[in-house]
């Protein structure tokens, strides 16, 4: 059953310099099933993050986003977001940050602190409950971000380049651990990234986006069984997927080059 349905989603920004409208996302249609892990990959500026923000209801949009068949226009408890720059409250400890979402949603489902501790443990931060964000590494901070999102028990996890600010090694480890957590929690996941490897490794489907304006170029189904392990990245099939997506993204670069030259010539 369709869990998220995106119909004709367009996003237009006012350019801060000249106030002219700028189309970031243009008539995107996409359906995501219950429990599916969908990754969105594209070069910077293709509107992939804007799309995620619109699905969460954080920015204005045209078109419709339906969750469980109901249209959503504002953030709701069935969706939770993990942010690229972590967006942790610097004056709150790890535990208090995980409690943040529960407080805001006036969580009634029993002991909040117990629940927060559970998710701190789940992301591997037990012992760090009383640390403040500035005392943690980037990877640890994003673990807090993930725990904060999971703690409010959403049906859908929206992740906006969550590992974009991390170094390559940490990034692979986090991806691996995210999958382990996802296997246990069974959320529908929408994951934005600019790393092709990350998109293939994590996703049931990879949405390849092009830019200028942001549109879906193609959706690729990834036929790897789950659970997936790190070694998957060395498989020949993985390389095939990688090459295909890379070609799709680089033809885009070539096309843009051509358009530019045309307009200059």
């Amino acid at each position: 059953m369709a869990h998220i349905q995106i119909e004709n989603l367009s996003i237009t920004y006012q350019s801060p310099q000249d106030g002219k409208p700028f189309v970031a996302v243009d008539s995107v249609n996409l359906t995501i099933d219950q429990g599916e892990f969908v990754t969105i990959v594209g070069s910077s500026g293709c509107g992939k993050s804007s799309m995620l923000m619109a699905i969460d209801g954080l920015i204005a949009k045209e078109g419709r986003v339906l969750v469980n068949g109901r249209e959503v226009n504002a953030p709701g408890p069935e969706r939770a977001m993990v942010f690229q720059e972590f967006a942790l409250m610097p004056w709150r400890s790890v535990l208090q940050n995980v409690l943040f979402g529960l407080e805001l949603q006036r969580w009634k489902g029993g002991d909040r602190i117990k629940r927060a501790r559970h998710y701190v443990n789940l992301v591997g931060l037990s012992g760090f409950e009383d640390y403040y964000p500035h005392q943690l590494s980037g990877g640890m901070r994003q673990r807090v971000g993930i725990a904060r999102a999971l703690a409010v028990d959403p049906e859908i996890l929206l992740m906006d380049e969550p590992f974009g600010a991390l170094d390559a090694q940490t990034r692979d480890v986090m991806g691996d651990e995210l999958l382990k957590i996802w296997d246990r929690e069974k959320k529908t996941a929408l994951f934005v990234t600019h790393s092709i490897d990350e998109a293939i490794f994590l996703g049931d489907r990879v949405v390849v986006m092009q830019k200028g304006p942001g549109r879906i170029k193609v959706v690729i189904k990834i036929d790897f069984p789950r659970p997936r392990a790190v070694e998957l990245r060395d498989e020949p099939e993985f390389a095939t997927y990688r090459r295909r997506i890379r070609d799709l993204l680089s033809t885009e670069v070539q096309e843009l080059q051509r358009i530019k030259e045309d307009s200059h010539g």
């Binding site: 969460d56 954080l58 953030p75 709701g76 408890p77 939770a80 977001m81 942010f83 720059e85 967006a87 409250m89 943040f100 979402g101 805001l104 949603q105 904060r148 409010v152």
Partner: peptide
């Protein structure tokens, strides 16, 4: 920081 406001709004503030 606008990101913090955005995060709070996302969690239903």
């Amino acid at each position: 920081d606008k990101e913090l406001l955005r995060a709070a709004i996302s969690f239903g503030a």
